[in-house]
Nucleic acid binder design. Sequence first.
RNA 1: GUCCUCGUAGCUCAGCUGGAUAGAGCACUCGAUUCCUAAUCGAGAGGUCACGCGUUCGAAUCGCGUCGAGGACACCA
Length: 528
Amino acid sequence: MKKRVIKAISDEIAEDFVLEKPKDLSFGHYATPLAFSLAKIHKKSPMIIADEVCERFVDSDIFESTTAIKGFINFKVSDTFLDTVATDALKDEENFAKASHDASILLEYVSANPTGPLHIGHARGAVFGDSLYRIGKHLGYKIESEYYVNDAGNQIDLLGLSLFLSGQEQFSDVKVEWPEEFYRGEYINDLAQEAEKEFGKEIFLDKENMSKLALWGKDKMLELISQNLSDANITFDNYVSEKSLYTKWDATLQKLQKSGALYEKDGKQWLRSSEVGDEKDRVAVREDGRPTYLAGDIIYHDNKYERGYDHYINIWGADHHGYIARVKAAIHFLGHDEKKLEVLLAQMVSLLKGGEPYKMSKRAGNFILMSDVVDEIGSDALRFIFLSKKSDTHLEFDVDMFKQQDSSNPIFYVQYAHARINQIFVNSGKKPEDVFDVQLEALDEDSKNLLFTSLLLPEVLEDAFSSRALQKLPEYLKSLAALYHQFYNKHKIVGVENEDSLLKVSAMAAVSLRTGLKLMGIEAKYKM
RNA sequence: GUCCUCGUAGCUCAGCUGGAUAGAGCACUCGAUUCCUAAUCGAGAGGUCACGCGUUCGAAUCGCGUCGAGGACACCA
């Protein structure tokens, strides 16, 4: 809708202009402060300029009226225009609010270590990434999602050690000395029991078996993680193994050496990251020749860039922010454009329950498990709350709020509006497609505002995606639902003279509600 | 100490690429149901946009500074 409006205006106005929403819908549907900037150039009063501009739109089909108020030029779209846009949307719901961006994007997110179940902090990045993916796809981007699996290095060794020790403790008489660092949490004990069933208790006798346990445990954990994810409606296009990338380490190392990115000091290989924005140089290869964790990310990002996407997005936990500069530095030294990589940070989450801090799971080793929260409030509510807030700010919420079956629970409120519309169709004995071709008539202001707002979804999606501010979508859905509830309370629909028109408006609202929900990874309810 | 993310109504947060009278939800008070789901709606009250200076016709929004909160500063991942 906005695109058509912009076109109509630029047909009459040569200058670039900003199209925005008026503070108050009673001014109009769209507005531009163009007259202020023109006033500066032409040394004329903005009010007079605005009046002159308005006159050019007197004969427009798209605009019912164009008025100048305090220098702002306000456009009110016509009923026929809204009707046309709505009819198109209704007849082709699948493609409603789609766009034709064609840039390719590689989106990496979650990438949690496969050494334990996902916790609530992971969940935020996971939900955000998944919805960004859904919206991007909808807008036409060639977007792929990827999970980078840290299946090499210390963490995995530690997992093997933890399993081994837990097994010894449970299945042998050996007295176990736990080192300072290991994975605690009962899930380790459970996993050790599973290992005992699969391999027998002998496996815990020989230290040689630790790496076998590590690999086996890693796969089990990965299964668990992908189960946690799919319980929240999240799937990935690709899983990339860190370990498998290491076959390319020598080649990558040579590339870095060639570009002069490395130097030797104290027997270690250092990356000159401080030359390109990092606070200090970083060790890439230790004295004993083992690469550091950074090496994995260097190979991985080289690999990403070699696959040739237009843009790369990583969603990381906020605690990794210090890591951005060194990865970008490495990308730079590898001869790639580091500006194509965008790192979004998912900030911490504090959970409350009934005003008290949410109980940590002993099973997980004093983390709040994602699966516990999903079990408690459901995937829909979890997704809605996480998407309702900017991803890069701290978030605190109380799970009890999302168990309420009334308007204090936003997801419930939105679902209820959608179910209500469906129920109205049931009561009218008609199906939405019966009213697609109805010509809207005698629309009062409320119906018109509802229809107009329903048709804003495409621009909301564009805005939300391009600014990576997904909270705009749930915000919009809440306001659309509110508008529908108001409309419903004020107007009888079934049995009135212009029933078909009101039904068509309702159908359009439903399309926007369920399309928006779908992009949030939430299924719309038809009956409640 | 350096670097992130912030500071907006009692609470949780929008608004921030400068624009019209600073918003929503919750909580609170009052009201609406012979009629499509009252699981809803309406009305009311609630503000030094942390503070100061600057840029501008115009600042919650941009810049600088101060204060305050949380986080990150590995040869761990």
